[in-house]
Every structure is written in C-alpha cells, then in structure tokens.
C-alpha cells in the first residue's frame, strides 16, 4: 500500500502536503506532486491537509483513479523531491474555488 496523489492536484499544487510528510517523499513537476511509493511510510498525514482532497490511500481509490498508482510510481522516479512549500500555481485559488463549489 501507499498513498497516491491524483489529478485533482493538477493546476493547483498547493504544497501543504509536502510540509507534513515525515520522510520527504513528495516529488514535483510543473503541474502537480507525486508520492514515491517506496519511501512513503503510510502515515496518512498528507490526506487531511490537502485543500482539494487530491491524496488518497491506494486501497481506497475510486476505480477511475487507480491508474494514478502507476503514474505516481513512474513520475516520482523521474522528478526531483520537494521538501518545503512552493508558491501555489497562479491557477490555484481558482481551482480551489471550483472544486469546493
């Protein structure tokens, strides 16, 4: 098992999740973050802090989100780790409003 960032994070990238990860296993590219499943210790701490509910335990993923398990594995291997908060993307606030509406 591991925790997985899903497409709800795209274009938003509040990096609240990164600040509470005890093992620094978040990676990042231009659009979103990814969790390295081999380093994640399954603490679940990142789930409640994500303002858009983008993170979920792999066993709880809806069927249409299961493909994100492999995407997180593949992209985390190709992207740098991120250890502290980034400024949110310019579209972030809009996304948050759209998703919470």
């Amino acid at each position: 098992m591991a925790y997985v960032v899903t497409d709800l994070c795209c274009g938003c990238r509040y990096t609240e999740c990164v600040t509470v990860c005890p093992v620094e296993c978040f990676h990042v590219d231009e659009t979103m973050t990814y969790i390295d499943p081999d380093n994640c210790i399954d603490c679940g701490g990142c789930v409640p802090v994500c303002p858009v509910g983008a993170i979920q335990a792999s066993y709880l993923l809806a069927p249409d989100k299961v493909s994100w398990i492999e995407i997180n594995r593949a992209r985390s291997a190709e992207t740098p780790t991120i250890i502290s908060k980034l400024p949110p993307l310019p579209t972030a606030e809009e996304r948050r409003k759209a998703l919470s509406a």
């Binding site: 600040t19 509470v20 990860c21 005890p22 093992v23 603490c43 679940g44 701490g45 990142c46």
Partner: peptide
C-alpha cells in the same frame, strides 16, 4: 494532535 509529520511543519 496530528501525525508524526505534522511535527515537521
């Protein structure tokens, strides 16, 4: 309150 990593922030 909070998980181990919450202490990091």
């Amino acid at each position: 309150e909070g998980t181990i990593g919450a202490n990091r922030a």
